[in-house]
């Protein structure tokens, strides 16, 4: 098996304790850091698809994301200063009045694995905080808002509309169990994805990557 293939399988299988060494070996064998990174991104794509299809579950996804981040740690010193692989910054948070964060965290991991620089604002995020964060950070290309309670759907709407009022060009993606494509359209969001697996593809599509 090629060293890169091994890294890929370790990420898919969530073997976080073994990935770092495998990445080192791949580098020593002459593989380019960028190729190793691309392979890991592809692995997370597979993981996301399996999750969407119901073949794997939250724990498998968490350990795969953890394994990928261990691999990325190893690549960082080699790739320092090289930002060509970044898709830009994405701001994400759970909207005001809502404290659920498992779904949001999974989406953060998937978008990060896909190549976004993630800024996680946490939970119970007021609409204006999203706007402030867009201003405080460089190269923000996307805002992602999560809401899990039907009672916080108005807060999701407010978040989208506050962001759009301040920056009409900013792309906004929404999600969470009670959110539907129709609701996303109704409140003026640019995109929606039903689960973390499909969120990365949708996010990339929105920014034209």
């Amino acid at each position: 098996m090629s060293k890169i293939q091994e890294v890929k399988e370790l990420v898919e299988g969530g073997k976080s304790k073994k990935v770092a060494a495998a990445v080192q070996k791949a580098l020593e064998a002459g593989d380019k850091a960028q190729d190793i990174l691309d392979a890991m991104v592809a692995s997370m794509g597979v993981v996301g698809e399996k999750f969407s299809a119901g073949e794997i579950f939250v724990p498998e996804m968490l350990i795969a994301a953890k394994a990928m981040s261990k691999g990325v740690e190893e690549l960082k010193p080699v790739m320092a200063g090289d930002s060509s692989s970044s898709l830009g910054t994405c701001i994400m948070g759970t909207v005001a009045g809502d404290l659920h964060d498992i779904g949001k965290n999974l989406v953060v991991m998937m978008l990060e694995s896909a190549g976004f620089d993630m800024v996680d604002l946490g939970v119970d995020v007021p609409a204006e905080r999203f706007v402030e964060a867009i201003k405080e950070n460089d190269n923000v290309v996307l805002v992602a808002c999560s809401g899990l309670l039907t009672t916080t759907m108005p807060a999701l709407k407010e978040a989208v509309q506050t962001i759009k009022a301040a920056m009409p060009e900013m792309k906004v993606i929404v999600g969470g169990a009670p959110v539907t494509q129709e609701y996303a359209d109704e409140i003026g969001a640019d995109g929606y994805a039903p689960d973390a697996g499909s969120s990365a593809a949708k996010a990339k599509e929105l920014i034209g990557a």
Binding site: G54, I56, F57, V58, P59, E60, G103, A177, D195
Partner: peptide, 12 residues
């Protein structure tokens, strides 16, 4: 679970 799936596989 969530509305559409269980948190873990039935085997786990």
């Amino acid at each position: 679970g969530s509305q559409i799936s269980t948190f873990m596989s039935p085997e786990t």
